[in-house]
């Protein structure tokens, strides 16, 4: 798993690539979220365009990020999930937890409207 970060004024965008499947990835992702929070970013958009699939451990990584950000009063949303990821989100009912978008601009706007 590789991580790249882009930032708008209020939202940090994490571009993930590779497989999200636990192990060392979990720590890297947690550290990234912590760092962003320290920089004042409580709202995070994870771009999944280059993540072909996740396993349940990978879902755990996203959940950890989500709960950490929620505690800070922010949230974590997803864009560009593949069909396979969408179906794992549906099966586990996590589709009700994670807002997903197919368009980055729309996703960024959704953070604004909440304020």
């Amino acid at each position: 798993m590789k991580i790249k970060i882009r930032k708008t004024d209020s939202v940090a965008i994490i571009d993930l690539s590779g497989k999200l499947m636990g192990g060392p990835d979990a720590d890297v992702f947690k550290e990234t979220i912590k760092k962003l929070i320290a920089e004042g970013y409580k709202n995070v958009l994870v771009n999944m365009a280059h993540v072909p699939w996740v396993n349940s451990t990978g879902l755990g990584i996203l959940i950890a990020g989500y709960t950490t950000l929620k505690r800070e009063g922010g949230t974590l949303k997803l864009t560009h999930v593949t069909d396979r990821i969408e179906s794992i989100l549906m099966i586990t009912k996590l589709g009700t937890i994670f807002e997903t978008y197919s368009d980055e601009e729309e996703a960024l706007k959704s953070f604004e409207s909440k304020k």
Partner: peptide, 21 residues
């Protein structure tokens, strides 16, 4: 893993997923 207490747990979904698909 679907119980309200468990929905945000970071693990414990593997067997459930297998049985679903």
């Amino acid at each position: 893993p679907l119980d309200e207490d468990n929905i945000l747990k970071e693990s414990g979904r593997g067997i459930y997923i297998m049985r679903q698909v």
